[in-house]
Design a protein around this nucleic acid. Sequence first.
DNA 1: ACGAGCGCCTGTCGGC
DNA 2: TGCCGACAGGCGCTCG
Length: 274
Amino acid sequence: MPELPEVETFRRNLSQGNNGSPSVIGKVIHNADVLWNGVLEMPSVDEFLHRVPGQTVVGVGRRGKYLLLHLSQDTLILHPRMSGEVILEKQEKELGKHYRLILNFQDGTRFAFNNVRKFGRVWLTETLDDVLSELGPEPLSDDFTPEQLFDILQTCHRQMKYVLLDQHMIAGLGNIYTDEALYLANIHPRTKSDSLSFSEVETLWKSIRKVLNQGIENQGTSIDWIYKGGDYQRLLQVYKQDGDPCPRCGTTIKKTTIAQRSTHYCPSCQPAPN
DNA sequence: ACGAGCGCCTGTCGGC
DNA sequence: TGCCGACAGGCGCTCG
């Protein structure tokens, strides 16, 4: 599930609270539970359980698809991968079947990491670089410019679908927003990255920011049972729209496989490279 | 350097 | 109705 807009939605809900649920900021951790040991990348479960009690949540951040729970001493870094979500609720609620890690706060609420498939991971560290140093630039930051994107695309000779999914190149795009951004920019997903002109890259830069911003405005995309609460699925132009007419030209949207991922595009608006 | 294949997991959906 | 395979928002690894 979660790509940048969904993780940003988690971040905002935790940070600002949402429909009745309060902000997590200021809460003091009473204790923690690791319900499936594989979820914790670092440190050891024992050390984790000893280190978090007493720490206060001082902020909630995001880097790419990683959610950052800033504590008074450490940062809890969480990657939801395909099916993870975070929940803030009262401790008297029954534990979810797929909860992998929880933080119990002194005020009777808890933070839960729910993860149906066990792909998601959690780190606790004082040094964010331990986990995040290899990530590419943050696509919505002011520092991210068309020039920078152009430079990144020039460093390799790979198909655009691969490049946009590669978190070392740009952090935060997943399968849905990659297809949508390439469609908006009229770029075929097999186009080689270093073959794009600067003006094509400029259009792509705008497209990436547009789909991510629209995704955030709509609280992400809900296309199946895993993630609910988003509305962006109503605005999807190509993702899962194969067989339907292209909103721009009426050509039938096609589906293929690139980078072992389902890939959707308009064969007419996004002409195949030579 | 690039990309295919696979493994990690659990649940849902469609076809038979 | 039930079984079985395909598929799913991600990513790291090996191999050619």
